[in-house]
Design a protein around this nucleic acid. Structure first.
Lengths: 210, 210
DNA sequence: ATAAAGATGTAACTAATGTTACAAAAAAAT
DNA sequence: ATTTTTTTGTAACATTAGTTACATCTTTAT
């Protein structure tokens, strides 16, 4: 595990911290679709991502979903952190978007390291900062953009996170994540296809130029 | 200043920290409408609220606004904190909603205290936690609620923060903060009036039952 | 091979929100 | 006192998004 840690967090953390992480951290290898956290769960450990990607979702009382953002290599889950520290339930769901490797840190160590290691403190604050900005971006999207622009942004984000120019999603799946209906997504995607931005296939969308 | 600190933060902070705050903090008394931070500003100090309320707003490139949340007694601005720590520009605007008393903490002390005082660390983490939850609430509102429900929530929040059953806003001001048009707000307010929820007057709205 | 389930396309319609335009009343400015 | 500005009310209309319904095609299950 020290090898993966050094590769992905070597520049961020001091040597002693890397050692500690490798001692108490639990390496986990999860497959695409694996649910890491459910809304209402109590959280007892915080993930450090080594590879892959995790999507973070919000859900309302009626079961309506909304994709918030993706976590990638070098990221941690800031919301999980705040939950841990405050001993409160998770407000979000986290699902592996790709096959993902991560190291789970027990919550007790979190608090300890925050006092002990400056590099850990900086990492935690930077994570919060990044996540705040991602949440603001989502707010911007749903408050200021129309559905067609939100869908374009969605496709762009997917391309970035999967590093592939083919998006493997059904129209229904996209509709869930953007909290709209399948018909609306089909309609807009068809429009994009006529504009030459994408090519539609069953179960996947080939991206030409967004 | 020590008196105000003890009254509002005495339960949270240890004695040494209270002393330090009173030494380096700058007491500020700002009038309703005073702009504390503008988008793009670099931030060099973090506020601790003693009394009053501050509204935090988001704006897109076209100048369209959206109210995010209010800060009150005992709160601090988590986004300002992350900006300070990361030396990045503010992503939000902060305006005094009421006449407000606050203590400004220089950013250097922030980092120092995070290592030194456990109570400060807890305070910082709790602030982040609260702000994340507020942001999630706004996301819920704009993603899952219709404009009529958002407006009701807006009125309820105003009543809470101002501790008054009269909301002193014009329809246009409300429209800006909810990022919609004046006509839409007038229409919905009229509907609420017919339902007996409110009474409409020039420049203010009397709340009957929400 | 046939049936069932899943994915997509599309029309027709409804609902919600946003826009334009103008009138009327109240307050502020001259 | 008169004019100007601000605020509110409301009608008519446009646009966007959501819903219902059904057809077609593909894949999976039996």
């Amino acid at each position: 595990m020290l090898k993966e840690l050094r590769e992905n967090y070597g520049d961020l953390f001091e040597e002693g911290l890397l050692q500690e992480i490798s001692q108490v951290g639990i390496f986990k290898d999860v497959a695409e679709g694996y649910k890491l956290i459910e809304i209402g769960d109590y959280v007892r450990s915080v993930p450090l991502l080594i590879s892959g990607a995790i999507k973070v979702l919000r859900e309302d009382n009626d079961g309506d979903e909304l994709l918030l953002y993706f976590l990638e290599r070098g990221d941690t889950c800031a919301m999980t952190m705040t939950c841990c520290m405050g001993q409160t339930k998770s407000e979000i769901r986290a699902v592996a978007e790709l096959d993902t490797e991560l190291i789970m840190i027990p919550v007790q160590k979190m608090e300890e390291w925050t006092g002990k290691y400056k590099s850990w403190r900086n990492f935690v604050f930077e994570s919060y900062h990044n996540r705040f900005n991602e949440l603001l971006e989502i707010i911007d999207s749903i408050a200021f953009l129309n559905m067609d622009e939100r869908l374009l942004k969605y496709l762009r984000d997917k391309v970035n996170v999967t590093k592939s120019t083919t998006v493997h999603s059904t129209h229904q799946e996209i509709a869930y994540e953007l909290h709209t209906s399948r018909v609306v997504i089909s309609r807009l995607l068809k429009r994009f296809e006529l504009l030459g931005k994408i090519e539609l296939h069953r179960n996947n969308i080939k991206i030409i130029s967004l």
